[in-house]
Write a protein that binds this DNA or RNA. Structure first.
Lengths: 220, 220
DNA sequence: TGCTAACTTGTACAATCGTCCAAAATAAGG
DNA sequence: CCTTATTTTGGACGATTGTACAAGTTAGCA
């Protein structure tokens, strides 16, 4: 436990600029390889080679392999959570929230970063899918994503006061799985149908799907 | 490729009863461990230990690790596909198909086997989620599941002749991801909401969610 | 500028990995 | 029962794994 928040021993000097760059390169390499091959499939030496540093540096900057993994997962989790929370708060200013608006605020930042945030965010988006799917990382996934998810479920519950919370939670989990499928299984849609047109319509289609699904589950 | 259907060299004698039992024990062990820890997380020695046989026997009965994995995934895939196809055919006899009926025929056999088919089917259900999520096994997943999925998408397309096939495919992929999430992320629903009541209502709730979602995506 | 914490390097370690193989034990087919 | 294909055993192989460590280099801070 607590792998994501290790006891930082007191540091007596500021890290050098070069070491920060090195650390970032290592974390980026780990992010890409963990997302591509999973925790066990990516070796410390693979990461070191991708980052173009000796093996020892990976341990030095990332700690143990598990700690490195947790750090990489947690690094962008907060930024993602803030983007989602801010989007929801901003939307609430404009007027009463709808289910469509709530889901757009949850899906939007994730999909936008995955599609236009550069290769690292694209890798991270896939990494989130991996962490969410593998039972081994339940605790880590819960630590990184459940608080924000809980807030969004609360927002939905406010809209439907007499709906059971477990129904809303189930619908939200289904919706998140669909969101992840859009990023991790886009190939499957293309294999089973025709090639998709533009990326912008993905969000609208996904939101339509989930809004109708959640409302149907509530009114069942 | 073709890892699932290796060239069987001519066998001059029938396999003994004991060897069949051993092979089944090895495959069951591989199924459980692959589902629990993934391909890289489960070692051949772990599998041998779980099956209570020497390491060499795993190679003897399963071939290479990749071949063993493909065999284990493919073993129950045909039975599952047949159950789905038969359910759809039987339902078609009773009267005109609806989207609800089609999805029930696709989700039902999987969820029923996962919940009441014993520990091996439960493990297999999780294994299906793993194979579907990991990009490394796209070809295997496509080989095992896409033909049947294609037939169900065809059935849905018949119901909505003027809907784009990629819209239906996307909705179906979202639906399948939700189905898998029900098995692999049941913990998450419980963590974010209250404990679920009975298992039978899962199917109805899931179907309601996906039917409404697909129809909304089509009519968008 | 000098001191020293921090960073970097390369190597070494024990453990485990997938695969292979020769010999012994087993059991099917004549 | 005898022959022999098959199954089973236990160990060995080289490669790779995560981690640790001592020595050398860099750079922050006084």
């Amino acid at each position: 436990m607590n792998a994501a928040i290790p006891q930082e021993k007191q540091r007596q000097r500021a890290p050098s600029k070069r070491s920060l760059e090195t650390r970032a390169r290592i974390w980026d390499a780990a992010e890409s390889l963990f997302a591509e091959r999973g925790f066990d499939g990516a070796s410390m030496r693979d990461i070191a080679k991708t980052a173009d540093v000796p093996v020892g540096l990976v341990t030095h900057h990332g700690g143990s392999k598990e700690a490195l993994f947790a750090s990489v997962v947690g690094r962008r989790a907060e930024e993602l959570s803030e983007a989602r929370t801010n989007a929801l708060a901003a939307r609430a200013e404009l007027g009463p929230l709808t289910l469509t608006a709530i889901l757009e605020c949850f899906f939007g930042p994730y999909l936008e970063k995955a599609e236009t945030g550069g290769p690292q965010w694209r890798a991270y988006a896939r990494l989130v899918g991996y962490v969410s799917a593998d039972a081994r990382w339940h605790a880590l996934a819960a630590e990184c994503f459940d608080p924000t998810a809980g807030r969004f479920i609360d927002a939905i519950s406010t809209l439907y006061p007499h709906a059971h919370r477990q129904t809303i939670s189930a619908g939200f989990v289904y919706s998140v799985s669909a969101m992840l499928a859009l990023v991790t299984s886009g190939w499957r849609v293309q294999a089973l149908g025709d090639p998709r047109v533009d990326a912008a319509s993905h969000l609208d289609e996904l939101v339509s799907f989930c809004v109708a699904g959640i409302e149907a589950a509530i009114n069942r």
